[in-house]
Design a protein around this nucleic acid. Structure first.
Lengths: 115, 115
DNA sequence: GAAGCATTTAACCATTCGGTTGACAGTCTT
DNA sequence: AAGACTGTCAACCGAATGGTTAAATGCTTC
């Protein structure tokens, strides 16, 4: 269990959610999730320049969602889903707001408020 | 079950993840989750102007994460967690990448690749 | 209707974003 | 060493972001 300040955690969540807020980047992650890929392989399906994809990869790397390893003149890109766990846990907190009926939720809130 | 195009879904995820990519906005959601709040009540804890908070609320509203209701000269702001569900489901896909050991994952990928 | 709140809108500013093109740097092949 | 290939970097562009202050809108109350 790694300790980390609330501020650092917030910054990590900022960068993870931001990395995921772009359709192309989410698509890249899906693709990379099926196995190691080179930058060229990753870029191929998209109608943007290689440089643009390179920037997307930098954003994903900044959020630690991917990891790169040099293999000769290529670069193997692997997914690193670990940071998503924190994001998912953040979201899970709100699960009660959609998994319970609205009436149950209302009661829950009223109970909390009256404390 | 509501049908919706992949494009519309992608746009919704864009806006939800973007809305969540800001520490202040996530903090606002936590606060609003404890019960209905007015804009003034929401803004009070933050060291930014009311106008800035008003903009954050607009972003959250754009992602449909909050709902407003006019109550006289006030506005009651309520959370609407439903869109988070979709985001959480997107993330859940990657759960296997952190809940299984790396070796198991390697095998999984190799099996998928060889198909 | 004037004064007083609650909140939004407008105008502005600096920074970031997502994209481009073109130059550059490694690496492999010949 | 010359080419070919993979990928990044730098410079630039227009649009969006997150903040400000000041003016405007809309209710409520006097």
């Amino acid at each position: 269990m790694v300790k980390s300040s609330a501020k650092a955690r917030a910054l990590r969540l900022d960068s993870v959610f931001h990395a995921l807020s772009d359709t192309t980047r989410r698509s890249i992650l899906r693709h990379v999730a099926t196995g190691e890929k080179t930058v060229g392989q990753i870029a191929a399906p998209y109608p943007v320049s290689l440089a643009a994809v390179s920037k997307h990869l930098k954003v994903l790397e900044g959020a630690k969602l991917i990891h790169r390893e040099k293999k000769g003149s290529f670069q193997m890109v692997r997914i690193n889903a670990a940071p998503m766990r924190e994001a998912e846990q953040w979201l899970a907190y709100y699960e009660k707001f959609w998994s319970e009926g609205l009436d149950a939720l209302q009661n829950l809130l009223e109970r909390e408020e009256s404390r």
